[in-house]
Each structure stands twice: as structure tokens, then as C-alpha cells.
Design a protein around this nucleic acid. Structure first.
Lengths: 158, 158
DNA sequence: AAACATCCTAGAGTGCACTCTAGGTCAAGA
DNA sequence: TCTTGACCTAGAGTGCACTCTAGGATGTTT
């Protein structure tokens, strides 16, 4: 056994363990710290980083914020507020509410894109079925334009 | 008037006009072409690119694919199929269907993130109301961990 | 005592999707 | 004719978010 105790003094993790549990790479975690995204990281006698169970949850939260498009800069702002303590609770809440709005907007946009993709898939279905490119007059001008793009061959259109 | 005719021989656009109508930059359009994303672009006597109305729609479609995370590489594959003509209709449809699935997955993931963000906002609301950090035992372990991350001050936790 | 895993720092390198620059051509209006 | 603005190509630069390398320390195992 390479470790004294699988859970050394209960939930004191080193960077490799945190990496394994969070799904981030060791490099990424150190880089996150360098960007001011890792509050409360201690060191042991040998200078190694020591994490607690909380950091697993923290990285999970950061991960959710990241994968919904929050920039490292904004995550840093948020982390800084966390580090400042309980005085910043409302600011943290506002920051998350602002991000929440952006996430909602994005979901709407993606759903719009989904509609367009579905129209295009249907358009191809019709084309395959009919054997010739379907008319798009039944679509509003705006949409029809996006329906089939441009010259395939290099011929046609004077 | 710098232009012969606002719609020169009806819907023959030059790059500046296409840029204006598509919202992309002139640079981006040329770069898209260099990446093989612009089928059927002709040149006039002076060597300038000439676009048709279709290209506006094409860029709108590309835009939707891009903003839903399709890579330039995949958009190139799609464009190549378009250029190959009607034999590739089913392949184009399959490509879009594959992308469609990815978009759906993403929307699910974003909705999950939204839930977590909402829980966190609610957590702050409770904290602000109570005056002290709320317990998170009522949450499943997994979620509770993400609730409040780690040491604020630099003190606490032996 | 030697080997090995794991950690450390500083900084270079990567991949993506543009974005911009330099240096030049072309055609319409004054 | 000359100026002006929109266009051309080739290629360099940018910003983001990592990812990896080099060179070294620590500490546990055999």
C-alpha cells in the first residue's frame, strides 16, 4: 500500500486523488489555482498541496459553470467573492443569477438551432423521397434562404 | 452612388455586402472559404468574389451549426458533401442527425447545470436569510458537497 | 541504499477559431 | 488623371483554456 491510510485523517486529499475524484487533470487543477480558482488550499510539511472533501464539490461546481460557458475570468471573480467571506453573499448570488440568465438564453438559442437542423433534415428526407430538390416556397422567405445553400457543381446561374 | 445598382443584376453580392447581411466579418468569410466552407463562389473579371443570395442562407446555417458547437472540421465535411452533389443526400442527413443528437445532449446537460445553479442561488438565499450557513443534510451527499466549497479565511479545519 | 511514485515550479507548447497587417490591384466618381 | 474605397493574397498575431516539459524534491517500499 502506497498510502498510509486510504482516507488519511479522513478526507485530506493530495492533488492526484483530487484529480481522480474530480475528473480534472493534475495540471488543470494546478493551473486553476494559478488562476485564483482554488480557495483554501493548504500545504503539508513537504510543500505539497492538501485538499479537503469540499474541493471535490467545488470543482464540480466550477465544472458546471465552465461547461455552461462561464469564463475563467468570471469564475475568478466568483472565487474572489467566496474568499472574501460572508459579506459577499449577495454579490455571489447576483453573479450566479446573471450567469443563470445567460444559460437560459443559450438553451433558447440551441433549441432554435435544433428546429433549423430538424427542418434541414426534413428537407433532405423530402429531397431523397421526391428525387428532386423540394420547393421551399411554403417556408417564410427568411428560412427558405437557408434551405439549400448554393451552387453544387460550379455550373448554373449565369 | 458607389454601386451601379443596389441589387446588381439581382442578388449578386460582393464580400462586403455578404458580410453586412450575414453578420460575419469580411475576414471571417474569406477564412471560411480557405477552410473549404464556401461552395460555389465565383469571381468577377477583376478577380473579386461574387456571391448569391443563397450564400446568406448558407452562412446562416453554418452559423447555427457553429454556435451549437460543430467544429470547422465537421462543417468542412458537410460542405464537401454538398459540393459532391445529390449522391450525398443521405450522408448529409446522417451528419445532421448525428449533430442533432449532440445538440440534444448538450441541452440536457445545460438544464442539469441550471438546476445546480438554482440550488446554489437558493442556498445563498437561505444563508442570507438565516444569517448563518444553512445545513445541507437534506440534500443527497453528492449535491451537498457542491453546496459550499471550502475554507474562506485560511483558518478552520485542523 | 536504491528505486519508484508522486509531488513541486516555471515556463513553453498546443489547438481552435478567428482577426489583423502589409503590400498590392481594380474600377468608379470628381 | 487622380483619388478613394472596396477588394485581393499570404501570412502573422490573438485570446482562451488548457497541456506538457524540464529539472528537481520528497517520501515510501524493497
Amino acid at each position: 500500500m502506497r498510502q498510509h491510510n486510504a482516507e488519511r485523517s479522513r478526507s485530506r486529499l493530495r492533488i492526484g486523488e483530487l484529480a481522480a475524484r474530480s475528473g480534472k487533470s493534475v495540471h488543470a487543477i494546478r493551473w486553476y489555482e494559478s488562476q485564483g480558482l482554488m480557495p483554501g488550499v493548504r500545504r503539508d510539511a513537504g510543500g505539497r498541496r492538501v485538499y479537503s472533501e469540499h474541493h471535490v464539490g467545488w470543482l464540480e461546481l466550477l465544472g458546471r459553470l465552465r461547461c455552461t460557458g462561464m469564463s475563467i475570468k468570471d469564475m475568478h471573480r466568483y472565487t474572489a467573492l467566496v474568499e472574501e467571506g460572508a459579506d459577499t453573499l449577495d454579490q455571489r448570488q447576483q453573479l450566479l443569477q446573471a450567469h443563470r440568465l445567460q444559460v437560459e438564453e443559450h438553451i433558447v438559442e440551441w433549441n432554435r438551432a435544433l428546429e433549423m437542423i430538424d427542418r434541414k433534415i426534413g428537407f433532405y428526407a423530402d429531397w431523397i423521397e421526391c428525387g428532386s430538390m423540394p420547393a421551399t416556397d411554403w417556408l417564410p422567405e427568411e428560412r427558405a434562404k437557408a434551405m439549400e445553400p448554393c451552387v453544387q457543381s460550379g455550373e448554373s446561374e449565369t
